[in-house]
Design a protein around this nucleic acid. Structure first.
Length: 832
RNA sequence: GCCGGGGUGGCGGAAUUGGUAGACGCGAAGGACUUAAAAUCCUUUGGACCGAAAAGUCCGUGCGGGUUCGAGUCCCGCCCUCGGUACCA
């Protein structure tokens, strides 16, 4: 019988479902392992081949760890709020919950089709009111900690559409000719900046890719410097932030951000029109435009002057949009000789520059080298290098009360509200006196109202604002009229804590039972794409730390080890996309080759972290391999039924079989631990190639091989294992299947590859007795000989000198040196 | 620009961290089986030279240097490429 993947795969999926084979165990005698996939958004287009890449990797680990005796938590669920369902609802009037449910069903079917060993009893869904309740609860904790506040923040407002756009929507709408402007609106903010330092520091102890940690560090953007006050006419002063207080003497002008509050106050009469014009122009630029047009420096002089505190020099104050209002103090001292941006600005507007750090050529460009520069023209710090100069100036400023050491972060507070329907409502009401308060926990969850239409309110508010019977409510505390918050939470909210809910998914009394939390602790392995390198991972870490601070979790970080899987490109080497017509649908692959083939191929393509192109021929290659595996066990001459090949015999294994088996067990196990799935598979291919040549394939050897294959290709492994389980009995396929199924009742154990321990290898069989020794002259391979393992240096050297080929190269020459590395090589160095 | 990853056969990729470069797979070529095809199996497959063959010699891991008995691996300087980020003072 030929490899019947389309029969056996659904059969075993049903078997695992019926037997709850992958139900999470919490046996206190065993160690735990928590392996997690990044939360999928159930889009309408279903799974693409990128999903199963990471999922297969984690599934292999999960299955392997179970076999190694761990309690494994390997869950899945749905990050199901989000824009697409809402946009579809606006177009069709169909409730987003309906589309979401359909999409989830598709995803679930596809994941089951691939044989992933998730504990489906722990499936979570962010849109489920039972889940929403606890998302709102966590928000309440943030609120109580003073980490949530309301602010007027500019959003992307599109007047024609009467709606606020997400950043990623902006270019799309602009292409259609709509205008998008920055409009300040009332928004919820989360004070992630309060955690900036800890988010930065704690990165060090995480087992994450260095590149990703670096991205987070850059995003947090810590810089150490000083705030310095510059006096201006009247009692006012301008405070600036600088990382180079040692260049204060080189400040030849100042710049305020156009939005800086002092601008109106200081602008001299003759300059008011120009300044107002500039401010007006800058305000109409979106963030994008402001950075896209970054090449040319623009700005205007305010007519005002400030006094440089180190030398009492009067310097002009400009406004320019290269200074950003929301970084530092929104104002800078400009040192054109030692800052490239200031240099460009000064060149454009013909402002003088003064060299205060020697070592460069400021005619050509700003000199910013802090390592080699030495202070000049700088009074009491002349001759000092950067670090010393910095310290001395800061100390001086602090003594005089003119400034102080300061740390700044690029990281901004998190804009945490969206003007949308399909998201979690805030558990907040607004009182008539303008104050707001949390709803008590007993009122949670606040659920979404049914809608006539999902169109935005037109005012910039969410569609919820158009439902007065939902908006108008009373304060449960005093019965006074109140209005509900109409913003909803962003999609990040649900995905910020889902990994915690998996530990205790059905708890209606608490978001997570402390015992459960302590048991499962950190996620041991987290696998997902780089697209979440910064935001999701930073937000989740932030929430986790807040929960840690209130004692709700016991670890300060959520994810111990993190691995990014590389993208899978189309066969043409381009990103898979409908417009290129190069999208591979996993359904098609499974139909044509089976789930085991898809799993195996995705792992065989190359290292998990790497970007790699799809290759249909390669799929056929691994499919061929599984066919070979099948034929290693199954007698193809028997029709319609899988019967063991007569070559499988219950005999004492021969030395050769043991060697290849133990090498394979060792390599595959080690490769799984290091997530080198591609080389694990090639080792199994080597095993199959060798055993294929044997007329007798010892039962014990073959059984253990099936177990090593099981994490990768669980369906075929389960089928072969069931065959081997009844080796000595001549029974029909149906009987075999039913006895296997009823094994729990019959023998007290459920038969499944998943319940078998990972095979042990014997080191003895993994090393060969004889080794091919390389003989070199001048580092060039001249001969190879077989020697017994462990042959001494002296003997190796003697053998080398006896080699004819070696003699050819050394005869008549002076031997300078002989390097003999046991079990590896001999290298003879000669002269002349 | 800055930060990070990566350049190895026709292709995807191996190479125990300084010790046989090219495992395994794909593709290609030849052969067996077959009326034929598919499937399967066997052989060959980095390049050049030499040879009837066996063997042998030289070149070869983006480029140029260096360290070393020995470099894909370490050091210095470049080039290309992919990701991230971008006026963050």
């Amino acid at each position: 019988m030929r490899y019947p993947f389309s029969d056996i795969e659904p059969k075993w999926q049903r078997y695992w479902d019926e037997h709850s084979t992958f139900k999470t165990t919490e046996d206190p005698a065993k160690p735990k392992y928590y392996v997690l996939d990044m939360f999928p958004y159930p889009s309408g287009s279903g799974l693409h081949v990128g999903h199963p890449e990471g999922y297969t990797a984690t599934d292999i680990i999960a299955r392997y760890k179970r076999m190694k005796g761990f309690n494994v938590l390997h869950p899945i669920g749905w990050d199901a709020f989000g824009l697409p369902a809402e946009q579809y609802a606006i177009k069709t009037g169909i409730h987003p919950a309906v589309t979401t449910k359909q999409n989830i069903e598709t995803f679930r079917r596809q994941l089951k089709m691939l044989g992933f060993s998730y504990d489906w009893d722990r499936e979570v869904n962010t849109t489920d009111p039972k889940y929403v309740k606890w998302t709102q609860w966590i928000f309440s904790q943030l609120y109580k900690q003073g980490l949530a506040y309301i602010d007027e923040v500019p959003v992307n407002w599109c007047p024609e559409l009467g709606t606020v756009l997400a950043n990623e929507e902006v270019p799309e709408q602009q292409e259609k000719g709509y205008t998008v402007i920055r409009k300040p609106m009332r928004q919820w903010m989360l004070k992630i900046t309060a955690y900036a330092e800890r988010l930065l520091q704690d990165l060090d102890e995480l087992d994450w890719p260095e590149s990703l940690k670096e991205m987070q560090r850059n995003w947090i953007g810590k810089s150490v410097g000083a705030e310095v006050d510059f006096a201006i006419d009247g009692d006012e002063k301008i405070r600036v932030f600088t990382t180079r207080p040692d260049t204060l003497w080189g400040a030849t002008y100042m710049v305020l951000a156009p939005e800086h509050p002092l601008v109106a106050k200081i602008t001299a009469d003759g300059h008011r029109e120009a300044v107002d014009n500039y401010i007006e122009k800058a305000s109409r630029k979106s963030d994008l435009e402001r950075t896209e047009l970054a090449k040319e420096k623009t700005g205007v002089f305010t007519g005002a002057y400030a006094v440089n505190p180190v030398n009492d020099e009067r310097i002009p104050i400009w406004i320019a949009d290269y200074v950003l209002i929301n970084y530092g103090t929104g104002a800078i001292m400009a040192v054109p000789a030692h800052d490239q941006r200031d240099w460009e600005f000064a060149k454009t507007f013909d402002i003088p520059m003064r060299e205060v750090v020697s070592g460069g050529n400021i005619e050509e460009s700003a000199f910013v080298d802090a390592e080699n520069g030495v202070a000049v023209n700088s009074d009491f710090i002349n001759g000092l290098k950067y670090e010393e100069a910095f310290e001395k100036v800061v100390q001086w400023l602090e003594e005089k009360g003119l400034g102080k050491r300061t740390v700044n972060y690029k990281l901004r507070d998190w804009l945490f509200s969206r003007q949308r329907y399909w998201g979690e409502p805030f558990p907040v009401i607004h009182k008539e006196d303008g104050t707001h308060k949390l709803l008590p926990e007993s009122e949670l969850p606040v659920t979404l109202p049914e809608m006539e239409s999902y169109k935005p309110a037109g005012t910039g508010e969410s569609p919820l604002a158009t439902v007065p019977e939902w908006v108008n409510t009373t304060d449960p505390a005093d019965g006074a009229p109140a209005k509900r918050e109409t913003n909803t939470m962003p999609q990040w909210a649900g995905s910020c804590w889902y990994y915690l809910r998996y530990m205790d998914p059905h708890n209606d009394d608490r978001f997570l039972d402390p015992e459960r939390e302590k048991y499962w602790g950190m996620v041991d392995l987290y696998v997902g794409g780089t697209e979440h390198a910064v935001l999701h991972l930073l937000y989740a870490r932030f929430w986790h730390k807040v929960l840690f601070d209130i004692g709700a979790v016991s670890t300060k970080e959520p994810f111990k080890k993190l691995v990014n899987q590389g993208m899978i490109l189309g066969e043409d080497g381009r990103k898979m996309s409908k417009s290129f017509g190069n999208v591979i649908n996993p359904d098609d692959v499974v139909r044509d080759y089976g789930a085991d083939t898809l799993r195996l191929f995705e792992m065989f393509m190359g290292p998990l972290e790497q970007v790699k192109p799809w290759n249909t021929k390669g799929v056929e290659g691994v499919h061929r391999f599984l066919n070979r595996v099948w034929r290693l066990f199954v007698d193809e001459s028997v029709e319609n039924e899988a019967r063991l090949d007569p070559a499988i015999q219950d005999v004492e294994p021969d030395e050769e079989s043991l060697r290849i088996l133990h090498k394979t067990i060792k390599k595959v196990g080690e490769d799984i631990e290091h997530m080198r799935f591609n080389t694990a598979i090639s080792q199994m291919m080597i095993f199959v190639n060798e055993m294929n040549q044997k007329d007798v394939r010892p039962l014990g050897v073959m059984k253990q091989f099936v177990l090593t294959l099981a994490p990768f290709a669980p369906h075929i492994a389960e089928e072969l294992y069931s065959l081997l389980s009844f080796f000595s009995e001549d029974i029909s396929e149906d009987e075999r299947q039913s006895r296997y199924s009823e094994s729990v009742a019959l023998a007290g154990v459920e038969l499944s590859v998943s319940n078998e321990p990972w095979p042990e290898y014997d080191e003895r069989y993994t090393v060969d007795d004889t080794i091919e020794l390389v003989l070199q002259v001048q580092g060039k391979v001249r001969d190879k000989i077989q020697v017994a393992k462990g042959t001494s240096r002296e003997d190796l050297e003697k053998l080398a000198r006896e080699s004819e080929n070696i003699r050819k190269h050394i005869d008549g020459k002076e031997i300078v040196k002989v390097i003999a590395v046991p079990d590896r090589l001999v290298n003879i160095v000669v002269k002349g």
